[in-house]
């Protein structure tokens, strides 16, 4: 009898020594254009919501490791979700969706008898977009692309201009208004988001949330490897009768060039509060500059006309 899959995982996780596999060869290198020789395999997350048990260990582990402040004891009444959204003070957010849809749509016995109930749980996080609007619009260069292909805000550079906030197509970033110790209690004023635990991943460690996740709903690893795993996983989940199952953000040709942190969902993205077809709006910047140029020209023309028309008060 050989190892039941996963039992090494248990012990190694328990011992905190679970290794992060790094493949020999990889298609997706992380931004060789900027990192050249130092470019490494692009690392990311595959969040498989079909095995999420909604324990929120990811939320707590994230806050513990990254010293993210507690942000209010607000009871939402929205199922078991009292975190409500990603933001400056919640870098992981577990969504809870109660549905009166059978657990499995193929009704093969596994439909919970008289209770056609389904309770979806999904841990959301910054998508670490291939084309990240937040990074593109940041005027200070506070947001940068790491050698692992992740997107990180440098807290010592961000001046809180807030431009990245409306730029993010997922509403991930937000400004922290809580008092900051280093500013004598004045609002912190900077934006914060998931760093993909840069201070851990840089040293080959697993991010805190993935490390804490008991069911491996959060999987960290080289992006191609994750995409491969996700495709197989989807086949199985669909075969198991979860008709609505789909991958979200795995496609390099989508509106943001694919997510560095993508998902397996059991229902429409919007059900979980995710945009159905997110787009990196900065793709149109060229057009916008041209539009602005045209408008500038029109302005010049208009003003010019104002001077040419009529002779009155022309001059002395």
């Amino acid at each position: 009898m050989q190892h039941p899959p996963g039992s090494p995982r248990a012990c190694e996780r328990a011992a905190g020594t679970r290794p992060v596999s790094t493949p020999a060869r990889t298609e997706t290198e992380a931004w060789p254009q900027s990192y050249g020789a130092e470019a490494q395999p692009r690392m990311g997350f595959f969040t498989d919501t079909s095995v999420c048990i909604g324990c929120k260990a990811c939320e707590v582990a994230c806050k513990e490791w990254n010293l993210v402040p507690e942000d209010g004891l607000v009871w939402s009444g929205e199922s078991f979700d009292n975190t409500s959204a990603l933001g400056a003070n919640s870098w992981r957010h577990v969504a809870f969706v109660e549905q009166t849809t059978p657990l499995r749509v193929d009704g093969d016995g596994a439909d919970g008898g008289d209770d056609p109930l389904r309770w979806l749980m999904s841990s959301d996080v910054c998508k670490h977009c291939t084309e990240s609007a937040c990074l593109n619009v940041c005027p200070t260069g506070a947001i940068f692309r790491t050698e692992l292909g992740t997107v990180v805000v440098q807290e010592d550079v961000c001046n809180g201009c807030g431009y990245c906030v409306p730029a993010c197509p997922f509403g991930v970033l937000d400004r922290r208004e809580l008092p900051a110790p280093d500013r004598g209690g004045r609002p912190d004023g900077r934006v914060w988001k998931c760093t993909l635990c840069y201070d851990r991943t840089r040293d080959g460690m697993t991010p805190a949330c993935a490390q804490a996740c008991p069911t491996e709903s959060i999987q960290y690893g080289p992006l191609d490897e994750l995409r491969g795993r996700a495709a197989e996983r989807l086949d199985k989940v669909v075969a198991d009768g979860f008709a609505g199952a789909r991958l979200y953000g795995d496609d390099p040709n989508d509106g943001v060039g694919g997510f560095g942190a993508f998902f397996l969902l059991l229902d429409e993205p919007e059900t979980y509060g995710l945009p159905p077809a997110p787009r990196d709006s900065t793709r149109h910047l060229g057009g916008m500059w041209r539009g602005a140029a045209a408008a500038g020209a029109a302005l010049l023309a208009g003003l010019g006309a104002a001077f040419l028309m009529g002779r009155d008060g022309g001059g002395a």
């Binding site: 959204a85 969504a95 409306p166 997922f170 509403g171 937000d174 400004r175 919007e270 979980y272 509060g273």
Partner: peptide
């Protein structure tokens, strides 16, 4: 969407 909550963040 999700309990009618914003998908995007309003500007700050």
């Amino acid at each position: 969407a999700y309990y009618g909550r914003p998908i995007l963040k309003p500007p700050v």
